Amino acid sequence: HSLRVHINGKDFEVHNADEHVIRALEELIRRGADADELKEFLERWKG
């Protein structure tokens, strides 16, 4: 899957995101994670 996440006016393109990554991202958003947390998660995932 390809996923586009809009954080703090920046678009993050997440390519080849598997279900696990997408679910983790949705969980963060549901918990009310702020932009920094989401960005950190995506950067860690992209490795």
Rank of each mutant, 00 (worst) to 15 (best):
H1L: 03
H1T: 15
H1P: 15
H1F: 00
S2N: 15
S2K: 14
S2Y: 11
S2P: 14
S2D: 15
S2L: 15
L3R: 05
L3Q: 14
L3C: 15
L3F: 12
L3E: 15
R4Y: 03
R4W: 02
R4D: 14
R4K: 15
R4F: 04
R4A: 15
R4P: 14
R4T: 15
R4M: 07
R4G: 15
V5C: 06
V5I: 13
V5Y: 02
V5P: 00
H6P: 01
H6C: 05
H6A: 04
H6K: 14
H6F: 02
H6E: 06
H6D: 03
H6R: 14
I7F: 03
I7N: 00
I7D: 00
N8E: 05
N8A: 07
N8P: 00
N8M: 04
N8D: 11
G9Q: 01
G9V: 01
G9Y: 00
G9E: 01
G9W: 01
G9S: 01
G9R: 00
G9I: 00
K10F: 04
K10G: 02
K10L: 05
K10R: 10
K10Y: 07
D11K: 06
D11A: 07
D11W: 15
D11Y: 14
D11P: 05
F12N: 00
F12Y: 14
F12I: 07
F12D: 00
F12L: 03
F12T: 01
F12H: 02
E13L: 06
E13Y: 10
E13F: 10
E13R: 02
E13Q: 05
E13V: 13
E13M: 05
E13K: 02
V14S: 01
V14F: 11
V14N: 00
V14A: 02
V14L: 08
V14Q: 00
V14Y: 04
V14W: 03
V14T: 02
H15M: 07
H15V: 11
H15K: 08
H15E: 07
H15Q: 08
N16S: 09
N16Y: 09
N16D: 10
N16M: 07
N16E: 05
N16Q: 06
A17F: 03
A17M: 06
A17D: 03
A17W: 03
A17L: 08
A17Q: 07
D18N: 12
D18A: 11
D18L: 04
D18V: 04
D18F: 04
E19P: 08
E19V: 12
E19T: 07
E19S: 11
H20T: 12
H20N: 13
H20I: 11
H20D: 11
H20Y: 10
H20E: 13
H20L: 11
H20V: 12
V21E: 04
V21Q: 06
V21W: 03
V21F: 09
V21N: 02
I22D: 01
I22Y: 04
I22F: 05
I22W: 03
I22C: 02
I22L: 06
R23F: 06
R23W: 05
R23E: 10
R23K: 12
R23N: 09
A24Q: 11
A24M: 12
A24L: 10
A24P: 01
A24G: 08
L25I: 12
L25W: 04
L25N: 00
L25R: 00
L25P: 00
L25K: 00
L25T: 01
L25Q: 00
L25S: 00
E26S: 08
E26M: 13
E26K: 13
E26F: 06
E26W: 10
E26Y: 07
E27A: 12
E27Q: 10
E27P: 01
E27W: 04
E27R: 06
E27T: 07
E27D: 12
L28W: 06
L28C: 04
L28K: 04
L28R: 05
L28E: 07
L28G: 01
L28Y: 04
I29H: 03
I29C: 04
I29G: 03
I29W: 06
I29K: 02
R30Y: 07
R30M: 13
R30E: 07
R30Q: 12
R30W: 10
R30S: 11
R31G: 12
R31M: 11
R31L: 13
R31P: 01
R31E: 11
R31K: 13
G32Q: 07
G32D: 06
G32I: 04
G32S: 05
G32C: 04
G32N: 08
G32M: 06
G32W: 03
G32F: 05
G32A: 05
G32P: 02
A33N: 04
A33S: 09
A33T: 09
A33L: 09
A33F: 10
A33E: 03
A33Q: 03
A33V: 08
D34H: 10
D34G: 11
D34P: 09
D34L: 08
D34S: 11
D34W: 05
D34V: 06
D34F: 05
A35I: 15
A35V: 15
A35L: 11
A35F: 14
D36N: 09
D36T: 09
D36Q: 09
D36C: 03
D36E: 11
D36M: 06
D36I: 08
D36W: 07
D36S: 10
E37F: 09
E37L: 09
E37Q: 11
E37G: 08
E37Y: 08
L38G: 00
L38I: 08
L38Q: 01
L38N: 00
L38Y: 03
K39R: 12
K39T: 14
K39G: 12
K39Q: 14
K39Y: 15
K39W: 15
K39H: 14
K39P: 01
E40C: 07
E40M: 09
E40I: 10
E40V: 10
E40P: 02
E40A: 12
F41M: 09
F41V: 08
F41A: 10
F41I: 07
F41W: 14
F41K: 02
L42V: 12
L42K: 01
L42Q: 02
L42E: 03
L42H: 04
E43S: 07
E43N: 09
E43Q: 09
E43G: 08
E43I: 07
E43T: 06
E43F: 03
E43K: 08
R44H: 12
R44Q: 13
R44M: 12
R44C: 09
R44D: 14
R44W: 12
R44E: 10
R44V: 10
R44N: 13
W45F: 13
W45T: 13
W45M: 13
W45N: 12
W45S: 10
K46I: 14
K46G: 14
K46R: 12
K46P: 14
K46Q: 14
K46H: 14
G47D: 13
G47W: 03
G47C: 10
G47I: 11
G47Y: 04
